[in-house]
Amino acid sequence: MATPVERLFTLFDETAKILQAELQCTYLEAVAETGENVFHGDVLQNEVSEINAQRLKKQYNDIQLERFTNEEIRKAFQLAVLKGMKEYTQPHHQMTPDAVSLFISYLVNQFTRKHLALTILDPAVGTANLLTTVLNHLKGKQTKSYGVDVDDVLIKLAYVNANLQKHAIQLFNQDGLQPLFVELADVVICDLPVGYYPHKENASRFVLKAEEGHSYAHHLFIEQSLYYTKEGGYLFFLIPNTLFSSDQAAKLHDFIKEHAVIQGLLQLPLSMFKTERAAKSIFILQKKGKNVKAPKKALLAELPRFSNKQMMQAMMRKIDEWITEEKGN
């Protein structure tokens, strides 16, 4: 008996293949098209032949979306997107691993215990997998969320992903390092795009621009995110472990010290990554403000393997205790 996630994935996969052939597009684009059809319960593409339109309609009608949870929908859609990513032309788009997205959701919940409402921004939203994971796990809070991505296929997938899960996310198809038309956020989450930023002229607006050559996109995203965060707001970044050992690290360190306090640095298990060079950590900042105090001791830890439930629970207890002690809640 197939699980709900498997049943939904099969629907996305089979119908995307039909649309891929009919529309002469990539599998990933077809996933976005079929996701939109599922949401509307209809075939929206005029180019589809009558016989295939009937086949698609039958498959869409056989599945009732309201019977699935948001997490089942997100996981099934994510599996189809991951399949499409393998043949997609932009290899630097890696989806945030599920275990990491879930852990970031847990951290956002813990650090914002006292908030009744949150404005959330992801300035490099991709397919909105990280953002919708966080939204699915926020307990009893009103949310307003924004996502920005320069890639038009990814933003279309984000839009469909949000619709299928009934999340009202305002999405912008633009370079996340250009001026943004968003409210200041209580929380920024971002799996930082790592590498050089190609647009020198735009980079020149930033304090963290390189003196010579191209600037690091991941440095500029940290700066940009801090500009769009409220005083006292939290930022959760997925960073390369090499962030503070690069040639421009001293400048970054000084900038962070001036504008934020470091709340924590949690190193992800090395077993998650193909090489040590690819390893990442979760970096937690709080933007400076009137009542913002640096923690007596920052939250520093190496996370155990996510599959080790016992050690993970012990780690989460430690984090809960740290937040209770530091934040008084």
Rank of each mutant, 00 (worst) to 15 (best):
residue 310 Q to V: 13
residue 139 K to R: 09
residue 79 L to W: 00
residue 121 L to K: 10
residue 96 T to L: 08
residue 163 N to P: 02
residue 48 V to H: 10
residue 236 F to G: 04
residue 238 L to V: 15
residue 128 A to H: 01
residue 13 D to H: 15
residue 193 P to Y: 12
residue 14 E to I: 05
residue 136 N to V: 05
residue 43 V to W: 03
residue 177 L to K: 08
residue 131 L to M: 12
residue 53 A to M: 10
residue 69 T to H: 05
residue 296 K to S: 11
residue 59 Q to S: 14
residue 286 Q to P: 02
residue 295 P to A: 07
residue 208 L to G: 08
residue 7 R to T: 14
residue 34 T to L: 13
residue 49 S to K: 13
residue 114 K to P: 01
residue 224 Q to C: 06
residue 69 T to K: 06
residue 187 V to W: 03
residue 225 S to D: 02
residue 45 Q to C: 01
residue 129 N to G: 09
residue 183 E to I: 03
residue 140 G to R: 07
residue 37 N to S: 11
residue 182 V to Y: 05
residue 148 V to H: 04
residue 275 T to C: 01
residue 198 P to V: 14
residue 263 Q to T: 05
residue 16 A to F: 09
residue 255 F to C: 11
residue 100 V to Q: 07
residue 321 E to Q: 03
residue 124 A to D: 00
residue 59 Q to L: 14
residue 298 A to K: 13
residue 10 T to R: 14
residue 9 F to T: 02
residue 228 Y to P: 00
residue 251 K to Y: 11
residue 157 L to A: 13
residue 189 I to R: 00
residue 301 A to W: 08
residue 168 A to Q: 03
residue 244 F to D: 08
residue 74 R to G: 02
residue 251 K to Q: 15
residue 305 R to W: 02
residue 252 L to S: 07
residue 230 K to R: 07
residue 24 Q to V: 12
residue 108 V to Y: 09
residue 199 H to R: 14
residue 298 A to G: 09
residue 6 E to C: 02
residue 26 T to Q: 14
residue 228 Y to R: 10
residue 272 M to D: 07
residue 237 F to T: 10
residue 73 I to M: 02
residue 259 H to G: 01
residue 236 F to W: 08
residue 282 I to K: 13
residue 53 A to Y: 02
residue 238 L to A: 06
residue 210 A to V: 08
residue 65 L to K: 00
residue 101 S to P: 06
residue 327 K to W: 00
residue 194 V to I: 15
residue 99 A to T: 10
residue 14 E to F: 00
residue 72 E to M: 04
residue 100 V to G: 04
residue 313 Q to L: 13
residue 89 T to E: 15
residue 97 P to E: 01
residue 110 Q to E: 15
residue 107 L to T: 01
residue 82 L to F: 06
residue 287 K to M: 01
residue 317 R to G: 07
residue 59 Q to F: 10
residue 32 A to W: 01
residue 286 Q to K: 14
residue 231 E to V: 04
residue 77 F to A: 04
residue 185 A to V: 11
residue 124 A to M: 06
residue 140 G to F: 08
residue 220 L to F: 10
residue 95 M to I: 15
residue 264 G to I: 10
residue 10 T to G: 07
residue 132 T to N: 15
